[in-house]
Design a protein around this nucleic acid. Structure first.
Lengths: 221, 221
DNA sequence: ATAAGTCTGTTGTTTTTCCAACGGAAAAGG
DNA sequence: CCTTTTCCGTTGGAAAAACAACAGACTTAT
């Protein structure tokens, strides 16, 4: 598990921890790792989760397929991100979504009960970890609300503009790249791909933005 | 603050606490209360929050108005529910939403720093409170994802069906009432009211459901 | 290098939603 | 009890999105 220490130091969950802190936490939290191939399902709808997870490397999509087979990407997980925290409440029921590795990925598992039940003496970092976990969930919560605000836009055009301008703000540059291809972006925003593609070109022709593949640039009007 | 103890005992945050626990926590967490009139804004976009809040009585809507004045209800808060947890992360920035009281409401405020920084001896319930808070946020997280799945439906019809069937499941009965009037439901699902109204009647005529005001009944097909 | 497969933009048709407006029913208020 | 306001269903025209299908550019695998 030692090789994950540099990564973990950069995660929000272990923010502020030293190497020693992390090593002792890994032990205290019963950390394990598991690798997934590209395209492999990490979890499926109907399954159960009893751990808190961090993506060490690769990329995961949390997605949902409805009764008629429409696919929707609910969220994208990048290295260092924590996930699964919504399902570790006792009796929270079965998973309602699929988690799929869109690249070869490695996931770290942490025993949730050991996180919430403090080990007073052994881990000096434990209190900070709790704080960090809380902050992380809060931020995720906020980003979910943010996505809800994209989704609540009435038109494809507004969805695109709100998502792209938020992304520009987030990356602190009017030029940025998004982690989706066209189909994935359409699934993320829950719109039709071809209609979205057309709308993107219309926005480009109107001079609001430019793009090449997944690289976008927003222009002042 | 004593009069809120019975309510707080029934909240998720204080689940499992005795009267004494709650009284000492109220003191430890610097709890205060504030009342809002019907229609009054509790918080406005651009403001800042430094407390964790619980709605004691009334009803709040978390809503967002976009540049062109379209109103969207992002969430509804009912008595006993915790809210504001997404904005208490240090440097999390200004509020992006409005919080409005749709009925005369009372809100309880708790000092977040006192929650996260344990007071070892004074409050025996503090550890459990942390656990409860974590569970609560997790559940909220989950319900946000659930709403995202309503929103990701491509048509008004599917949005209605997914929301109503989830609500039936949640209330454990095929007959149930929703906490929205038509306009609010339309805002919640981000669709046009009149179109939604028409779709509802179409669903009724097709025999999938029945309704009277905000009382709905789903029928097997 | 070639072939197979994927990604993206484009077009035309069909379907759905949005919007504005109206009237009746119900609720609220005096 | 009467007036005013809100709520809800309905309609028709305008606008937008969904859908299906296709062709060129680019990737990947052999």
């Amino acid at each position: 598990m030692k090789k994950y220490v540099p990564l973990l130091k950069r995660t929000k969950l272990f923010s502020g921890a030293g190497d020693d802190d992390i090593l002792s936490m890994l032990n205290c939290l019963n950390a394990t790792a598991r690798a997934y191939n590209k395209g492999e399902y990490a979890f499926r709808q109907g399954g159960y989760i009893r751990d808190l997870m961090i993506l060490a490397e690769g990329r995961l999509h949390i997605q949902k397929e409805d009764y008629w087979g429409n696919l929707n990407i609910l969220n994208e997980i990048r290295p260092g991100e924590m996930f699964g925290e919504a399902y570790i409440v006792p009796n929270s029921g079965a998973l309602m979504n699929d988690v799929i590795a869109t690249e070869a990925s490695t996931v770290l598992f942490f025993d949730i009960d050991r996180i919430l039940t403090a080990c007073p003496s052994a881990c000096p970092f434990h209190t900070q970890l709790l704080k960090n976990m809380f902050y992380t969930i809060s931020e995720k919560n906020k980003s979910l609300v943010q996505k809800l605000s994209y989704m609540s836009a009435r038109s494809t055009r507004e969805k695109l503009l709100s998502y792209l301008s938020d992304e520009a703000k987030r990356q602190n540059s009017s030029s940025f790249s998004i982690p989706f291809n066209r189909q994935q972006l359409a699934d993320f925003l829950s719109v039709d791909r071809s209609a979205m593609s057309g709308e993107l070109c219309k926005l480009r022709d109107e001079g609001l933005l430019g793009f090449h593949k997944s690289e976008f640039t927003l222009y002042e009007v």
